[in-house]
Design a protein around this nucleic acid. Structure first.
Length: 491
RNA sequence: GGCCCCAUGGUCAAGCGGCUAAGACGGCGCCCUCUCAAGGCGCAAUCACGAGUUCGAUUCUCGUUGGGGUCACCA
């Protein structure tokens, strides 16, 4: 039988990387076995409806490279794929359970439930007291006839225990007395999330339920439902949570469930910060899963390779901390692996912003590729190209190369006329400068350092002296060198 | 608080009774070098604790501690 997994997000307008990783694993679980990946939108909560939120979901999946085989936008044999369009399906299933004495009408008011909870002792948490579980039929009919609002609750088993198997966590056992008589249909006639989930998963033929480990303890409730209907329980794959690390007000490092206070955790937030979608997916694939066999110790995976390498056995049980440093590294690896065309396509907007000459593209790629971990850094790396800022002549002094104001002045005086006559190529410039050093019998650094400083006006530049000069263009470069010389001369 | 789950360096992690306990990120050092990177080489850093089982436990069992999750007419 073909594996079918589903991604069932709620349209909140925000895609958390934790949810996205769940989607990734759902996708990989299916695709590794050549199965089907289904997208279902869970939008039963009208109050939380956000305009355009479903588009965020489509866009996320698209840019993340997780293409679904069935879904609201592309259809499929198990539609509709939007829960709000399935609303009339759920109640009959619940009524069926009522008829079979596996569920019951509950007329308890919200107030009564609130009082119940309020009556709980300090620190104690109590569930529903099953007040309506054994109402006489006459009373039920009476209330129904009177139009008293009701919910439908499942009759959970009262004793014994339930065990189920999870592919990651093994056998999980829970005492049945822990199970609540959960609401299936709300007073407004809408299904609860849990109920809709089970009905949808079953009717959509979902074989593998992949979800976060926060569902580990509520899974017996789901299973009770499958059992009540006599349906086959799906294969469960619960995923460890992704945690975030932050520093609290006392300076203590705290680790907790990844959330906004840990920095950017929305997929598009990360993309906007310059992380490549492929790199993000690559990184989060490795959060909670490690490759084995021929893929052991491998860190960089294209999506097709992930599909091939993915194995449920490699999923770990313990939560993992989202590490921005490692993501940064993965992103840099992707940049380094880019072709010139790809690199330019990503860099172009930043180039245009600065106004660099197309003739410099090749050189810039060479310079920038090993130096940026995100394309957004280009602007800052090329800052020196814009305007020559006023700078402190102390910059000319460099201990290691023994550069001083004195040697810098000499170097600039000698270099400027030579450069003025020089072909403006990297090779020619390098030759002139090293030639000058040789003629003066000094180390290259004594020439390169002051020339580069005068040209850039800052100590740190991407690339070396010749590269900086080329990027500036001959006229601007010579102009800046003269300014440098003037500054030193004036003191 | 009840219940469930988890526990190898700072982080991601391999390990599945016997190993000098992999690898990666990060850190540090060295090399290269006109700066910054990249690259190369190297170093430091881990089995939470306590009982068992066993000839032998990181590995199996129990307990302790710590962490996380969950207890809605939310999804």
């Amino acid at each position: 039988m073909k594996i079918r997994t589903r991604f069932a997000p709620s349209p909140t307008g925000f895609m958390h990387v934790g949810n996205l990783r769940t989607a990734l694993y759902e996708y990989l679980t299916a695709k590794h076995e050549d199965g089907t990946f289904v997208l279902r939108i869970e939008d039963t909560d009208q109050e939380r409806y956000v305009e355009g939120a479903t588009d965020v979901i489509y866009n996320t999946l698209k840019t993340a490279g997780l293409t679904h085989d069935e879904g609201p936008d592309i259809g499929g044999d198990f539609g509709p794929y939007v829960q709000s369009e399935r609303l009339n399906m759920y109640k009959p299933y619940a009524e069926q359970l009522v008829k079979e004495c596996k569920a019951y009408y509950c007329f308890c008011t919200k107030e009564r439930l609130d009082e119940l909870r309020a009556s709980a002792k300090e620190g104690e948490v109590i569930g529903y007291d099953r007040h309506c579980r054994c109402l006489p039929q006459s009373e039920i009919d009476e209330k129904l006839a009177a139009g008293i609002p009701y919910v439908i609750r499942q009759m959970a088993p009262l004793e014994g225990e339930s065990t189920y198997h999870d592919c990651v966590y093994g056998d999980i056992t829970i005492k049945n007395e822990e199970l609540d008589d959960q609401v299936l249909i709300k007073a407004d006639g809408f299904p609860t999330y849990n109920f809709a989930n089970v009905i949808d998963d079953h009717t959509m033929g979902i074989t593998h339920v992949v979800r976060g480990s926060e569902y580990l303890s509520s899974t017996p409730k789901y299973n009770a439902l499958y059992d009540a209907f006599g349906w086959e329980i799906p294969t469960y794959i619960h995923l460890p949570l992704i945690m975030g690390k932050s520093v609290d007000e006392n300076g203590e490092t705290v680790v907790s469930k990844l959330s906004k206070r840990h920095g950017s955790t929305g997929f598009f937030d990360l993309v906007n910060e310059g992380y490549l979608p492929e790199a993000i997916m690559n990184y989060i694939a490795l959060l909670g899963w490690s490759p084995a066999g021929e893929f052991e110790n491998r860190e960089i995976f294209k999506m097709e390779e992930l599909i091939k390498a993915f194995d449920i056995n490699g999923i770990s049980k313990s939560p993992s901390v989202f590490d921005y440093d490692k993501l940064e590294w993965v992103n840099a690896e992707y940049i380094k692996a880019m072709s010139s065309e790809e690199f330019l396509a990503h860099a172009k907007p930043y180039y245009d912003d600065i106004g660099v000459d197309a003739g410099c593209y090749e050189l810039l790629e060479e310079i920038l590729k090993p130096r940026i971990t995100r394309f957004t850094q280009i602007t800052e790396k090329l800052e020196f190209l814009k305007e020559l800022e006023d700078y402190d002549i102390a910059l000319f002094e460099h201990k290691k190369s023994k550069s001083t104001l004195e040697t810098s002045k000499d170097a600039l005086e000698a270099a400027i006329p030579l450069l003025a006559e020089c072909d403006w190529t990297r090779e020619a410039i390098t030759e002139v400068l090293t030639g000058l050093a040789a003629a003066k019998e000094v180390k290259n650094a004594l020439i390169m350092w002051p020339v580069r400083i005068a040209a850039a006006g800052v100590a740190v530049t991407p690339g070396g002296c010749a590269e900086v000069l080329i990027l500036l263009g001959k006229d601007e470069a010579i102009r800046r060198l003269n300014i440098g010389l003037e500054k030193i001369t004036k003191g």
